[in-house]
Protein backbone atom coordinates (compact mmCIF):
# COMPACT_ATOMS: atom_id res chain seq x y z
CA UNK A 1 0.00 0.00 0.00
CA UNK A 2 2.89 2.28 0.69
CA UNK A 3 3.85 2.16 -2.95
CA UNK A 4 0.35 3.11 -3.97
CA UNK A 5 0.36 5.96 -1.52
CA UNK A 6 3.70 7.20 -2.72
CA UNK A 7 2.66 6.89 -6.33
CA UNK A 8 -0.31 9.19 -5.96
CA UNK A 9 1.49 11.68 -3.80
CA UNK A 10 2.05 15.09 -5.23
CA UNK A 11 5.55 16.04 -6.29
CA UNK A 12 7.38 17.50 -3.37
CA UNK A 13 7.85 20.74 -5.22
CA UNK A 14 4.06 21.17 -5.26
CA UNK A 15 3.70 20.86 -1.54
CA UNK A 16 3.67 23.91 0.66
CA UNK A 17 7.23 25.10 0.69
CA UNK A 18 9.12 26.40 3.65
CA UNK A 19 9.59 29.63 1.83
CA UNK A 20 5.84 30.13 1.77
CA UNK A 21 5.88 30.50 5.49
CA UNK A 22 7.23 33.35 7.47
CA UNK A 23 10.94 33.47 8.10
CA UNK A 24 11.85 31.20 10.93
CA UNK A 25 8.62 29.23 10.77
CA UNK A 26 9.58 25.62 10.98
CA UNK A 27 6.08 24.38 10.71
CA UNK A 28 5.14 24.86 14.31
CA UNK A 29 1.62 24.72 15.55
CA UNK A 30 0.02 27.73 17.17
CA UNK A 31 1.45 27.02 20.58
CA UNK A 32 5.01 26.65 19.41
CA UNK A 33 7.85 28.75 20.64
CA UNK A 34 9.94 28.69 17.57
CA UNK A 35 13.61 29.57 17.81
CA UNK A 36 14.43 28.09 14.46
CA UNK A 37 16.37 29.82 11.75
CA UNK A 38 15.48 33.34 10.84
CA UNK A 39 17.98 33.76 8.03
CA UNK A 40 19.63 33.83 5.80
CA UNK A 41 19.84 37.55 5.60
CA UNK A 42 22.25 38.68 2.97
CA UNK A 43 24.85 40.70 4.85
CA UNK A 44 25.51 44.19 3.59
CA UNK A 45 28.35 44.40 1.13
CA UNK A 46 31.72 44.79 2.73
CA UNK A 47 33.06 46.70 -0.25
CA UNK A 48 31.91 49.68 -2.26
CA UNK A 49 31.81 49.50 -6.02
CA UNK A 50 35.16 51.24 -6.35
CA UNK A 51 36.69 48.95 -3.73
CA UNK A 52 35.50 45.97 -5.71
CA UNK A 53 37.18 47.43 -8.77
CA UNK A 54 40.37 47.97 -6.83
CA UNK A 55 40.29 44.44 -5.45
CA UNK A 56 39.87 43.04 -8.93
CA UNK A 57 42.76 45.14 -10.17
CA UNK A 58 44.93 43.68 -7.43
CA UNK A 59 43.79 40.14 -8.23
CA UNK A 60 44.47 40.57 -11.93
CA UNK A 61 47.88 42.10 -11.27
CA UNK A 62 49.03 38.65 -10.24
CA UNK A 63 48.48 37.39 -13.79
CA UNK A 64 46.09 34.79 -15.10
CA UNK A 65 47.58 31.29 -14.74
CA UNK A 66 48.83 29.68 -17.90
CA UNK A 67 50.58 26.43 -18.61
CA UNK A 68 54.23 27.43 -19.23
CA UNK A 69 55.17 28.04 -15.65
CA UNK A 70 53.47 24.90 -14.32
CA UNK A 71 55.00 22.67 -16.97
CA UNK A 72 58.37 24.37 -16.84
CA UNK A 73 58.74 23.87 -13.10
CA UNK A 74 57.50 20.30 -13.33
CA UNK A 75 59.90 19.43 -16.14
CA UNK A 76 62.81 20.97 -14.30
CA UNK A 77 62.11 18.87 -11.23
CA UNK A 78 61.56 15.73 -13.28
CA UNK A 79 64.97 16.22 -14.82
CA UNK A 80 66.43 15.79 -11.34
CA UNK A 81 64.66 12.50 -10.78
CA UNK A 82 67.28 9.98 -11.83
CA UNK A 83 66.41 6.75 -10.10
CA UNK A 84 62.82 7.83 -9.48
CA UNK A 85 61.53 9.10 -12.82
CA UNK A 86 62.97 6.78 -15.44
CA UNK A 87 61.65 8.51 -18.52
CA UNK A 88 61.67 12.06 -17.22
CA UNK A 89 58.01 12.43 -18.16
CA UNK A 90 55.91 10.29 -15.85
CA UNK A 91 56.17 8.77 -12.45
CA UNK A 92 53.92 6.71 -10.26
CA UNK A 93 55.27 6.22 -6.78
CA UNK A 94 52.67 4.85 -4.42
CA UNK A 95 54.95 4.49 -1.44
CA UNK A 96 53.84 7.27 0.90
CA UNK A 97 57.47 7.74 1.83
CA UNK A 98 58.12 8.71 -1.78
CA UNK A 99 61.26 8.16 -3.77
CA UNK A 100 64.35 10.17 -2.87
CA UNK A 101 66.57 10.79 -5.88
CA UNK A 102 70.32 11.36 -5.55
CA UNK A 103 69.64 14.98 -6.44
CA UNK A 104 67.83 15.36 -3.14
CA UNK A 105 64.41 15.67 -4.75
CA UNK A 106 61.63 13.44 -3.43
CA UNK A 107 58.80 12.21 -5.67
CA UNK A 108 55.48 10.91 -4.39
CA UNK A 109 52.19 10.27 -6.13
CA UNK A 110 51.49 9.93 -9.82
CA UNK A 111 51.62 12.30 -12.71
CA UNK A 112 53.36 13.40 -15.79
CA UNK A 113 53.67 15.86 -18.59
CA UNK A 114 53.54 14.94 -22.20
CA UNK A 115 53.26 16.93 -25.35
CA UNK A 116 54.90 18.43 -28.34
CA UNK A 117 54.31 18.93 -32.01
CA UNK A 118 52.26 16.54 -34.03
CA UNK A 119 53.90 14.68 -36.87
CA UNK A 120 52.89 17.31 -39.38
CA UNK A 121 54.28 20.08 -37.24
CA UNK A 122 50.92 21.82 -37.33
CA UNK A 123 49.59 21.48 -33.80
CA UNK A 124 51.40 21.71 -30.52
CA UNK A 125 49.72 20.08 -27.54
CA UNK A 126 50.81 19.64 -23.98
CA UNK A 127 49.14 18.04 -21.00
CA UNK A 128 50.28 18.22 -17.43
CA UNK A 129 48.42 15.97 -15.06
CA UNK A 130 49.23 15.09 -11.52
CA UNK A 131 48.09 13.77 -8.18
CA UNK A 132 51.46 14.27 -6.58
CA UNK A 133 53.93 16.16 -4.50
CA UNK A 134 57.55 16.72 -5.47
CA UNK A 135 59.77 18.10 -2.74
CA UNK A 136 62.81 19.85 -4.15
CA UNK A 137 66.26 19.65 -2.66
CA UNK A 138 65.57 22.75 -0.59
CA UNK A 139 62.52 21.11 0.91
CA UNK A 140 59.96 23.16 -1.02
CA UNK A 141 56.98 21.07 -2.17
CA UNK A 142 55.43 21.28 -5.61
CA UNK A 143 51.85 20.22 -4.85
CA UNK A 144 49.62 19.26 -7.71
CA UNK A 145 46.11 17.91 -8.04
CA UNK A 146 44.65 18.38 -11.47
CA UNK A 147 45.58 18.91 -15.05
CA UNK A 148 46.32 21.59 -17.58
CA UNK A 149 45.58 20.85 -21.23
CA UNK A 150 46.97 23.11 -23.89
CA UNK A 151 46.62 23.30 -27.66
CA UNK A 152 48.54 25.80 -29.78
CA UNK A 153 47.98 25.99 -33.51
CA UNK A 154 50.18 28.38 -35.45
CA UNK A 155 48.71 30.25 -38.38
CA UNK A 156 50.11 32.84 -40.62
CA UNK A 157 50.61 35.84 -38.42
CA UNK A 158 49.98 34.28 -35.06
CA UNK A 159 49.00 31.47 -32.73
CA UNK A 160 45.60 30.04 -31.85
CA UNK A 161 45.73 29.02 -28.23
CA UNK A 162 43.36 27.18 -25.95
CA UNK A 163 43.88 26.04 -22.42
CA UNK A 164 41.84 24.09 -19.90
CA UNK A 165 43.06 24.64 -16.36
CA UNK A 166 41.57 22.34 -13.74
CA UNK A 167 42.86 21.75 -10.26
CA UNK A 168 45.28 22.91 -7.62
CA UNK A 169 48.91 23.85 -8.32
CA UNK A 170 51.35 25.29 -5.82
CA UNK A 171 55.13 25.59 -5.77
CA UNK A 172 56.33 28.38 -3.49
CA UNK A 173 59.80 28.32 -5.03
CA UNK A 174 58.39 29.49 -8.36
CA UNK A 175 57.82 33.12 -9.25
CA UNK A 176 54.39 34.55 -10.12
CA UNK A 177 51.15 32.61 -9.92
CA UNK A 178 52.61 29.15 -9.28
CA UNK A 179 54.56 30.46 -6.34
CA UNK A 180 51.43 31.87 -4.76
CA UNK A 181 49.55 28.75 -5.67
CA UNK A 182 46.12 28.61 -7.22
CA UNK A 183 43.03 26.54 -7.53
CA UNK A 184 40.96 26.86 -10.64
CA UNK A 185 38.55 25.55 -13.19
CA UNK A 186 38.92 27.83 -16.15
CA UNK A 187 39.22 27.95 -19.89
CA UNK A 188 41.09 30.33 -22.19
CA UNK A 189 40.70 30.77 -25.93
CA UNK A 190 42.98 33.23 -27.66
CA UNK A 191 44.37 34.36 -30.99
CA UNK A 192 47.83 35.74 -30.34
CA UNK A 193 49.18 37.83 -33.18
CA UNK A 194 52.83 38.03 -34.00
CA UNK A 195 52.35 41.78 -34.03
CA UNK A 196 51.09 41.79 -30.48
CA UNK A 197 47.42 41.84 -31.41
CA UNK A 198 45.34 39.76 -29.03
CA UNK A 199 41.87 38.35 -29.07
CA UNK A 200 41.29 36.40 -25.88
CA UNK A 201 38.41 35.12 -23.82
CA UNK A 202 38.57 33.71 -20.31
CA UNK A 203 35.82 31.73 -18.62
CA UNK A 204 35.75 30.11 -15.23
CA UNK A 205 37.28 30.67 -11.86
CA UNK A 206 40.66 31.02 -10.25
CA UNK A 207 41.93 31.70 -6.80
CA UNK A 208 44.14 34.68 -7.52
CA UNK A 209 46.29 35.59 -4.57
CA UNK A 210 43.60 34.60 -2.12
CA UNK A 211 40.78 36.26 -4.02
CA UNK A 212 38.18 34.01 -5.59
CA UNK A 213 37.53 35.39 -9.05
CA UNK A 214 35.25 34.08 -11.77
CA UNK A 215 35.28 35.23 -15.37
CA UNK A 216 32.15 35.27 -17.46
CA UNK A 217 33.37 35.55 -21.05
CA UNK A 218 35.91 38.20 -20.17
CA UNK A 219 37.06 39.19 -23.63
CA UNK A 220 39.54 41.57 -25.14
CA UNK A 221 39.88 42.17 -28.84
CA UNK A 222 36.26 41.36 -29.43
CA UNK A 223 33.24 43.54 -30.01
CA UNK A 224 34.87 46.44 -28.21
CA UNK A 225 38.24 46.14 -29.82
CA UNK A 226 41.00 46.41 -27.26
CA UNK A 227 38.50 47.31 -24.56
CA UNK A 228 37.14 44.47 -22.47
CA UNK A 229 33.67 42.97 -22.48
CA UNK A 230 32.05 40.39 -20.29
CA UNK A 231 32.00 40.22 -16.54
CA UNK A 232 34.20 39.38 -13.58
CA UNK A 233 32.90 38.14 -10.26
CA UNK A 234 34.64 38.61 -6.96
CA UNK A 235 33.63 36.57 -3.95
CA UNK A 236 33.12 38.30 -0.65
CA UNK A 237 34.32 36.37 2.41
CA UNK A 238 30.69 36.23 3.50
CA UNK A 239 30.12 33.80 0.64
CA UNK A 240 28.16 36.16 -1.60
CA UNK A 241 29.49 37.45 -4.90
CA UNK A 242 30.08 40.85 -6.42
CA UNK A 243 29.50 40.90 -10.17
CA UNK A 244 31.34 43.50 -12.19
CA UNK A 245 29.95 43.79 -15.72
CA UNK A 246 31.54 45.90 -18.42
CA UNK A 247 29.18 48.43 -19.90
CA UNK A 248 28.32 49.19 -23.48
CA UNK A 249 30.65 52.18 -23.65
CA UNK A 250 33.60 50.00 -24.57
CA UNK A 251 35.85 51.34 -21.88
CA UNK A 252 37.16 49.64 -18.77
CA UNK A 253 34.22 50.64 -16.62
CA UNK A 254 30.98 48.98 -15.70
CA UNK A 255 28.47 48.24 -13.01
CA UNK A 256 29.08 46.35 -9.78
CA UNK A 257 26.19 44.33 -8.38
CA UNK A 258 25.93 42.52 -5.08
CA UNK A 259 23.26 39.94 -4.41
CA UNK A 260 21.37 41.31 -7.38
CA UNK A 261 21.53 44.98 -6.38
CA UNK A 262 23.71 47.55 -8.10
CA UNK A 263 26.41 49.13 -5.97
CA UNK A 264 27.42 51.63 -8.64
CA UNK A 265 30.18 51.94 -11.16
CA UNK A 266 33.78 50.82 -11.08
CA UNK A 267 36.62 50.43 -13.51
CA UNK A 268 38.82 47.38 -13.95
CA UNK A 269 41.51 47.18 -16.56
CA UNK A 270 42.38 43.57 -17.44
CA UNK A 271 44.51 44.53 -20.41
CA UNK A 272 47.84 43.72 -18.81
CA UNK A 273 46.63 40.41 -17.41
CA UNK A 274 45.21 39.36 -20.76
CA UNK A 275 48.35 40.50 -22.55
CA UNK A 276 50.29 38.33 -20.12
CA UNK A 277 48.52 35.29 -21.50
CA UNK A 278 49.72 36.09 -24.98
CA UNK A 279 53.21 36.86 -23.80
CA UNK A 280 53.56 33.64 -21.83
CA UNK A 281 52.39 31.52 -24.74
CA UNK A 282 54.47 33.37 -27.28
CA UNK A 283 57.61 32.97 -25.16
CA UNK A 284 57.01 29.28 -24.57
CA UNK A 285 56.43 28.60 -28.23
CA UNK A 286 59.53 30.46 -29.27
CA UNK A 287 61.45 28.14 -26.95
CA UNK A 288 59.74 25.09 -28.42
CA UNK A 289 59.82 25.57 -32.18
CA UNK A 290 58.52 22.94 -34.52
CA UNK A 291 61.17 20.40 -35.37
CA UNK A 292 61.18 19.31 -38.98
CA UNK A 293 63.13 16.35 -40.28
Amino acid sequence: MLLVLAACAAPVSDLPAAQDTARGDTGADDTATDTGPTGPDVPPPALTASEVGAALDVALAGEIPTFPEAIGAFSALMALGVGCTPDDRFFKILDPEGCLAPSGVTYSGAGGAVGGWDDAGEVYTYELRGDLVIIDAAGVPYEMGGDIDTVVTPYVGGLAFSQQFLGTFRYPAAPTWLGRGTSGSAWIEADIGDDGALVAQVDGGYDLGGASVYFDALTVGGACGSAPTGAIRLRDMSGYWYVFTYGPECDTCGDVAYAGDSLGAACVDPTAAMAGIGEAVRTWMSDHPVVTE
Binding site: D131, E143, M144, G145, G146, D147, L166, G167, T168, R170, S183, G184, S185, G204, G205, Y206, D207, S212, V213, Y214, D216, R233, R235, G239, W241
Partner: peptide, 22 residues
Amino acid sequence: YWWVIQYNPYEMDTYHAEREPL
Protein backbone atom coordinates in the same frame (compact mmCIF):
# COMPACT_ATOMS: atom_id res chain seq x y z
CA TYR B 1 33.21 20.84 -3.32
CA TRP B 2 33.78 20.01 -6.97
CA TRP B 3 37.11 18.21 -7.08
CA VAL B 4 38.95 18.06 -10.36
CA ILE B 5 40.91 15.01 -9.24
CA GLN B 6 39.64 12.75 -6.53
CA TYR B 7 42.15 10.97 -4.32
CA ASN B 8 44.10 14.21 -4.06
CA PRO B 9 44.40 15.93 -0.68
CA TYR B 10 44.96 19.43 -2.10
CA GLU B 11 41.75 19.18 -4.04
CA MET B 12 39.66 17.37 -1.45
CA ASP B 13 40.49 19.05 1.83
CA THR B 14 40.04 22.61 0.65
CA TYR B 15 36.88 24.41 -0.35
CA HIS B 16 37.13 25.85 -3.86
CA ALA B 17 35.13 29.03 -3.63
CA GLU B 18 36.12 30.09 -7.12
CA ARG B 19 34.25 27.06 -8.51
CA GLU B 20 30.90 27.95 -6.96
CA PRO B 21 29.63 29.58 -10.18
CA LEU B 22 30.44 26.43 -12.15
